[in-house]
Nucleic acid binder design. Sequence first.
DNA 1: TGATACTAAATGTTCATACAAATAGTTGTT
DNA 2: AACAACTATTTGTATGAACATTTAGTATCA
Lengths: 243, 243
Amino acid sequence: MKLSIDHKSPVPLHIQAEQLLRELIKDPAYQAGKLLPNEVELAKKLAISRTTLRQAINKLVYDELLIRKKGFGTKVASSKISSKSMNWLSFSQEMKARGINVKNYELHVSWVFPDESTASFFDISTDKKIVKMERLRGGSDNPFVYFISYFHPRIGLTGEEDFKRPLYEMLEDEYSTVANLSKEEISAIEANKFIADKLEIETGGPVLFRKRFVYDQGERPMEYNLGYYKAESFVYTVESRRT
Amino acid sequence: MKLSIDHKSPVPLHIQAEQLLRELIKDPAYQAGKLLPNEVELAKKLAISRTTLRQAINKLVYDELLIRKKGFGTKVASSKISSKSMNWLSFSQEMKARGINVKNYELHVSWVFPDESTASFFDISTDKKIVKMERLRGGSDNPFVYFISYFHPRIGLTGEEDFKRPLYEMLEDEYSTVANLSKEEISAIEANKFIADKLEIETGGPVLFRKRFVYDQGERPMEYNLGYYKAESFVYTVESRRT
DNA sequence: TGATACTAAATGTTCATACAAATAGTTGTT
DNA sequence: AACAACTATTTGTATGAACATTTAGTATCA
């Protein structure tokens, strides 16, 4: 563990300083409430300007890892929150764990032009086609979720893959692409006619809508997933703990 | 609405700039994706240094209200109200951080007999009254969430507390009760007549429903909270990472 | 047509410097 | 002992300057 700054590295100094601080504050003394070295001294020691050092500290303050007190000092925030929920089961695995047998009602793969928001997330242009996958899935009696997935062209999907396999397993095996981070947005919406037909409910009825932004190991966007869940049949659970 | 900086005000310039930007980006043109004026020009126009202006912009970028793109420009991030770290911040604090003024439309505290599931969660009998709090809250124009909270008798609430204060702050200060673990269930449901009336929507319309089971440091149940969010106006966000 | 090279414009990084404001402790006074 | 005034330390605010890097479009050339 290097606790110094490399001025020749292409990595910006404030990023290096931030990482260094993240290591530094693991020290039990700091965890116990000891004040960090003051900014002027620390900047001098690291051979960077106070401005640059503050940039790093600010980031950690934003992230609620550090607390500053004007005229006094900076210390580690006591009870840091970590709302990391483990939600890394695939849909089919998740259902299996609940004792529900997943049935695929529809599966459709196509090449389409991405819309604005999709292109923006992938950071590509809108006039280059990408792979889109649509799936209608559910229990043995009736469908209860409609998925739409878009994949980043970087992955190299052809559209001819075996999408009946668990998706992330296939991506990992065949394309060395591993999902690492998922940002999700859950909301309640009215079913439009299309979705209502698929889920066999009434138009205007409640639907749980989940957007997933999935990133690979390099924090690069890899999948954009939309899920429309029939209300009542799906509950999203989250567990978060103060540590 | 003043869109200029007062250099004589005791309010720091970067705070003023931040507030000014929050107003500025309400402009439909910016909401539609128009780039903000570039930093050098804008700083000159506001008669502050670029460094100070960047400090303000950085704050909004961190709050996910703005998106910067190196070599190109800065624009508004298109997204709705979300509850990113809502898990551990109070509702009002979270809204405040996003520049939304929270209004309390209704507040009602009462002593009631718990129903079966509530009593079961608290592990108490159903013939002992507990404190129930109901709140209708929202923005300046209309309500968008209805909360119902039940508290474990162990806490010792009298029902006479100042519920206008941030809830967890009050519980910590007055009753030494600290929330430590939260289990949540999110689903989409149809609004029944009662909820529809409160949220000013149609009966049967979509509502995002969140159940929270909150535990204290000793993992003992302390609060049971039900939240009914008006659809479209609320998005629940979760971020999870493989570790 | 299509690839390549260039360029203006914008954000990103870094520095040195100065003064303001709050804190916690110390010193002085009653 | 209680209160007030002072002080050293530390973070907060603000400036201006310079150069790096990336982007998106334009111009050039094969």
